[in-house]
Amino acid sequence: QTVQFNGLEYHFPNPEEAEKFAKKVAKELGGEVRVKDGRWQID
């Protein structure tokens, strides 16, 4: 599972970890999490 933001990609072994990370980062950055092409993106 991949999380993308600021032009970087973070890879996680399972979707739960990816989701948790994506939501944490979005909260800290005040961004929005969305899934695109099977990847988590933070904008």
Rank of each mutant, 00 (worst) to 15 (best):
R39M: 13
E28C: 15
L8I: 13
G38R: 04
A22S: 03
T2H: 05
R39D: 04
E17I: 06
P13F: 08
K27G: 08
E9T: 14
V33I: 11
W40G: 02
D43I: 15
G30V: 03
W40E: 02
G31Q: 07
T2G: 02
K36L: 10
P15G: 08
K27T: 09
E9D: 08
R39F: 12
T2D: 03
G30Q: 06
Q1R: 13
E32A: 11
G30K: 07
G7C: 15
I42N: 02
E9H: 08
P15K: 11
F5H: 06
F5T: 02
E28L: 14
N14L: 05
F5D: 01
E32N: 11
F12D: 00
Y10P: 00
H11V: 10
W40Y: 07
K36Y: 07
E16D: 09
E9N: 09
Q1H: 14
P15T: 09
P13G: 09
F21V: 01
Q4E: 14
R34V: 13
L29H: 11
K36W: 06
L8F: 12
E28Q: 10
A26T: 04
Q41K: 06
F21H: 00
V3Q: 01
G30P: 03
I42R: 02
Q41L: 14
P15L: 07
F21K: 00
P13R: 11
I42P: 02
D37G: 08
L29T: 13
K20Y: 10
K27Q: 11
E28P: 03
E32F: 14
Y10G: 00
L29W: 12
N6S: 07
E9P: 03
A26W: 05
Q1A: 13
K24G: 07
V3D: 00
E17G: 04
R39N: 08
N6R: 12
P15M: 10
L8W: 12
K24V: 06
L8T: 10
G38K: 03
Q4R: 12
V35S: 06
Q4W: 14
K27Y: 11
V35Y: 15
V25T: 06
K27F: 11
K23L: 12
Q1T: 14
N6G: 09
H11A: 07
F12Q: 00
A18M: 01
A22Q: 01
A26E: 02
E16S: 09
Q41S: 10
E16A: 10
R39E: 06
W40H: 02
Q41V: 15
E28M: 13
K20N: 08
K36A: 09
E32P: 04
E9A: 08
E28S: 08
A18G: 01
H11W: 13
E17Y: 04
F21I: 01
P15E: 10
A26K: 03
G38V: 01
V35P: 03
F5G: 01
K24N: 07
A18P: 00
G7A: 04
E28T: 08
V33T: 06
R39W: 07
E32I: 14
A22C: 13
P15D: 07
D37Q: 05
T2Q: 05
I42T: 03
K23P: 00
D37N: 12
N14S: 13
Q41I: 15
T2K: 06
W40S: 02
E9Y: 12
T2F: 10
H11I: 09
A18H: 00
V3C: 06
V25F: 06
G38D: 05
K27D: 09
D43Y: 15
A22Y: 04
L29V: 14
Q4V: 15
Q41A: 07
E32W: 11
E16H: 09
N14A: 04
P13C: 14
T2S: 09
E28R: 12
E19S: 06
A22R: 04
Y10R: 04
V25K: 10
E28I: 12
H11T: 09
R34W: 12
K24L: 10
N6F: 10
L29C: 15
R39G: 06
A18F: 02
A26D: 01
E19D: 04
G7R: 05
D37V: 02
G38P: 02
L8E: 09
E17W: 05
Q1Y: 15
Q1P: 08
E9G: 03
E9Q: 10
L8C: 15
I42W: 05
G31I: 13
P13W: 08
R34F: 14
Y10M: 06
A18W: 02
G7N: 06
A26G: 05
E19Y: 13
V3K: 01
T2M: 08
E32R: 13
E19T: 03
F5P: 00
H11M: 08
Q4P: 02
F5S: 02
G38Q: 04
R34A: 08
R39L: 12
K36M: 09
K20G: 06
G7K: 04
G30R: 07
G7E: 04
I42V: 10
K36I: 14
V35N: 08
K36F: 07
H11F: 12
E19M: 09
K27V: 08
H11Q: 08
V25G: 01
P13M: 10
A22M: 05
H11D: 05
D43C: 15
A18I: 01
K36N: 08
N14I: 04
K23H: 12
Q4G: 06
V3Y: 03
Q4N: 09
E19N: 04
N6I: 04
P15V: 11
D37Y: 02
E17T: 07
W40L: 07
K23R: 14
E16W: 13
N14C: 14
E9I: 15
R34T: 13
F21G: 00
K20A: 13
F5N: 01
V3S: 00
D43M: 14
K24T: 08
P13I: 09
D43W: 15
A18V: 01
V35D: 04
E19F: 11
A22D: 00
V35G: 04
F21C: 13
Q1F: 15
V25Y: 06
E17S: 08
R34M: 10
E32S: 13
V33D: 02
R39I: 15
A22H: 01
V33Q: 02
T2L: 09
E32H: 12
N14Q: 04
E28G: 05
D43R: 11
Q4H: 12
W40I: 06
E16Y: 12
